[in-house]
């Protein structure tokens, strides 16, 4: 039981890393990784929202869509659920903790467009995860995303001062680096 969940967690963090192995959530990965501080904020916000959203979309599917026979609406309703969760989180954080809001504030609305969030919701469905499994899978996906984002941001700060040839400045060398990191993560294949 406990092993199953830890296997699921490790698989989502390392072996099937959402960014480097499944290529989901690349927009924030490239967009918010210029500075370590912002990457930290983004990864905390994403972890919170992704975990919550995967639980909520699981509930929505099993207790709303399926009883009503509305399976075909799942993509659009998941998008709605995610947008609502993000908005709700933003409101709660703003009222309850101004400090946290200052740290996360800018990033929260951005998460709505993170395809990893929708991806986790749909993958949970495909893999027929139960509620707890969905939660763990969502959390693992978020941890994997955060790990890679933060490491990548630290590396890009170093790349910013490297003597990179003119045509490869900025996003281009970032993409090359992401590719190399993806190669490195293939080493985890087969661990679970």
């Amino acid at each position: 039981m406990l092993t199953d969940y830890s296997v699921l967690l490790i698989s989502a963090i390392l072996v099937n890393n959402f960014v480097l192995v499944q290529f989901l959530g690349l927009c924030p990965f490239m967009g918010v990784s210029n500075k370590l501080e912002t990457a930290m904020g983004m990864s905390m916000a994403t972890t919170f929202v992704l975990t919550l959203a995967s639980a909520c979309s699981h509930l929505t599917y099993n207790y709303l869509l399926q009883p009503l026979g509305l399976d075909y609406l799942r993509t659009i309703s998941f998008i709605l659920v995610i947008a609502v969760v993000v908005q709700f989180t933003e409101m709660v954080v703003r009222k309850s903790s101004p400090l946290l809001h200052r740290v996360l504030g800018v990033y929260l609305p951005l998460i709505t467009t993170n395809c990893a969030v929708l991806g986790v919701a749909l993958l949970n469905l495909n893999k027929e995860h139960n509620f707890l499994q969905s939660l763990v899978y969502g959390f693992g996906a978020a941890l994997g995303f955060s790990l890679v984002l933060v490491l990548f941001a630290a590396m890009r700060e170093r790349l910013a001062v490297a003597d990179v040839p003119e045509p490869f400045h900025g996003a281009a060398i970032g993409m090359v680096t992401a590719g190399l990191m993806s190669l490195a993560f293939m080493g985890f294949a087969g661990i679970v």
Binding site: L151, A154, L180, L183, A184, G187, A189, G190, I191
Partner: peptide
């Protein structure tokens, strides 16, 4: 536990990747 018999190359790339963060 992985698929590849030797792991030094992969491990090195992964720690290279983590080095700026560690620093």
């Amino acid at each position: 536990w992985g698929n590849y018999p030797d792991a030094v190359a992969f491990a090195v790339l992964i720690v290279n990747f983590a080095a700026p963060f560690i620093d």
